[in-house]
Design a protein around this nucleic acid. Structure first.
Lengths: 142, 142
DNA sequence: TTAACTTGTTATTAACATAGTAACAGTAAA
DNA sequence: TTTACTGTTACTATGTTAATAACAAGTTAA
């Protein structure tokens, strides 16, 4: 798919768990909010648990944030979800016998790393709490 | 593809045209440096011409940069090549009747715009000339 | 003019990542 | 025991990109 929603859906899950913490944070309920299916949600939740952003108990509907929403950033979620964390990718198959083909990979890797750093810095400045607050404000002003 | 090489290949083309400007900038020659095929290269070149980064003449091997490499940035190439210019994408199919699903799209769009801006600022600071210089330095130190 | 080459474009196929779905073992609780 | 949930795996469907082929139109040289 051109438009990967994994990050957005993962943020959605975390947000839902916190905002509806007195409700029913089952994968079925969350899936109906994401308008996806429970299995997909569970797969993402599994990654979030492994990254220590969520806690859960097998067989029980007991999902909670593993730590306060103020301490979770968008970057945390990004790194938990995206197995390939690079936004830009070099072409790894260029002709090594050409001046350009033989060096451009290293050159672009450095450049792309800077772009990545800039994007990640931006992601690191957004907390889950800020996202939650914004959602609540938007909801209140409807 | 998970790893799109379009941007890298486009930079490769521009770099090749400039570095090998006294040589043969035909799509065949460039394709052998990119280790891709001439048709793919021509398609990318077509986009670069439309974006006023390259000039060419039908039927003639006469491809050149449309303007000095100092005035072309990675962002220019990115915007010329990537039809969808967003690096991150919101899930546009969330449940509007849920507090979270009904507001998270707007919330994330703002957040993602900031990330995009940070990435594009970084891309805008890299000129094609800087990339060319780096390639030449790397090549000289081999 | 012809022949060989190029660009620019379109169409088709192949490769592959992601979304969606189904299934099932294991756990918890009534 | 029955029900419901989690966590995981496998499979299918969908959609994007890479790769390839083909061809009209322009250029150059013989």
């Amino acid at each position: 798919m051109k438009y990967s929603h994994k990050l957005s859906d993962a943020v959605h899950i975390l947000t839902f768990v916190e905002i509806c913490k007195d409700g029913d944070p089952s994968s079925n309920t969350i899936a109906s909010s994401v308008e996806s299916n429970p299995s997909l949600v569970r797969r993402l939740m599994s990654l979030l648990v492994k990254a220590n952003l969520l806690t859960s108990q097998p067989g029980k509907v007991a999902t909670k944030l593993a730590r306060p929403a103020e301490t979770i950033t968008l970057l945390d979620v990004y790194q938990a979800i995206e197995d390939n964390q690079q936004l830009l990718h070099v072409d790894e198959k260029t002709n090594p016998r050409c001046i350009v083909g033989g060096n451009i990979q290293d050159t672009l890797n450095v450049v792309y790393d800077h772009v990545q750093q800039a994007a990640e810095n931006s992601m690191n400045q957004v907390t889950l709490q800020a996202i939650i607050d914004d959602i609540l404000v938007r909801n209140a002003s409807k």
